[in-house]
Each structure stands twice: as structure tokens, then as C-alpha cells.
């Protein structure tokens, strides 16, 4: 057991957990933030994506101990309030970018990460680029059509926000 402290969604947290605790287990089981999901065990589906120190990472493929001292944002930490959703969350709703909702948190965390990276580098986030960037996020419901549209819309909403 090791005491692991980090900042999650703007709050300092600390829990005594076994060394083999995954970051996703720390988030879901110990902090009880259950928006971050687990959809596979080979690091491919991306339902578990969170931001660690501002970068999208797969929380199922990272030990909680390795995030000691890090700043972590989960899907619960994205919106300013329940009535003020993040522009990407609004875009997913406006474009019907979700159906069962299970992959959605990971999709949104990957989407905001890609938009921020492309904007920082001054690159255009084309449809092709979005599809390529989504390599690590699997959705079984939407056929991706509306997820791609959501991210296009979310990117422009984030620019104008």
C-alpha cells in the first residue's frame, strides 16, 4: 500500500492504495468518479481516457502511483457547471454524437485533447485528421459519423469560446 496524492478535477485528493492499482481504479473505485469507463483490457477502446498534466492518456494503462503529484482531469471535471457544459460536450449533444453513452467520456476527453493540440500547432483539424486521431477510441453505436461531426463542431465552438 502506498499513499497516492494528486489533483483531480481541481481538488487535491489522497488515498492509500495497493501499488498495483491502476489510475482508472483509483478514479472509479477510490474516488468514486464513475464517468471514466473500462471497455477493454488491451488499451484499445479509449473509454478510460483522462487528461494527465494536460495530455490525454489511457487511465487503464497507467498505475495510479505513476500519477503521483499529477493534475488529472476526468470527464466530470470538464464542464464549468451542470448548466454550463464544455463546448465539446455541447457539440456532442447538438450533433447526436452519442447513443449508449459508454464510450462518450473517453471520446470527449480525446476530442478536447486533439483540438487543443491542433490549435496549439496551428494545424487544421480536417475530417481525415479527426478520424485518424480517433484511432484509440472505439464506439460501437454511432458508426462515428456523428462523432466526427461533433468534434468538427466542438473544435469551432472551442475556438469561439
Amino acid at each position: 500500500m502506498t499513499k497516492i496524492a494528486m489533483n483531480v478535477n481541481g481538488k487535491a485528493v489522497s488515498r492509500e492504495v495497493p501499488d498495483n492499482t491502476l489510475l482508472v481504479e483509483y478514479i472509479r473505485e477510490h474516488l468514486r468518479l464513475t464517468g471514466t469507463h473500462v471497455g477493454c483490457d488491451t488499451s484499445q477502446c479509449g473509454a478510460c481516457v483522462v487528461h494527465v498534466d494536460g495530455k490525454a492518456m489511457k487511465s487503464c494503462t497507467m498505475l495510479a502511483a505513476a500519477a503521483e503529484g499529477a493534475t488529472v482531469t476526468t470527464v466530470e471535471g470538464l464542464a464549468a457547471s451542470k448548466d454550463e457544459l464544455h463546448p465539446m460536450q455541447i457539440a456532442f449533444k447538438d450533433n447526436h454524437g452519442l447513443q449508449c453513452g459508454f464510450c462518450t467520456p473517453g471520446m470527449i476527453m480525446s476530442a478536447t485533447d486533439m483540438v487543443e493540440r491542433y490549435q496549439a500547432e496551428g494545424k487544421e483539424l480536417t475530417e481525415e485528421a479527426i478520424r485518424h486521431e480517433l484511432e484509440g477510441n472505439i464506439c460501437r453505436c454511432t458508426g462515428y459519423h456523428n462523432i466526427v461531426k461533433s468534434i468538427q463542431d466542438g473544435a469551432s465552438k472551442m475556438t469561439n469560446a
Binding site: 488499451s43 479509449g46 495530455k55 494503462t61 493540440r117 486521431e133 477510441n137
Partner: peptide, 9 residues
Amino acid sequence: IGDPAVRHR
């Protein structure tokens, strides 16, 4: 290599 999240780590 991998996907964006994998490349970050």
C-alpha cells in the same frame, strides 16, 4: 505508433 493517448505515455 499506437494512438495519441499511447504516444503521450
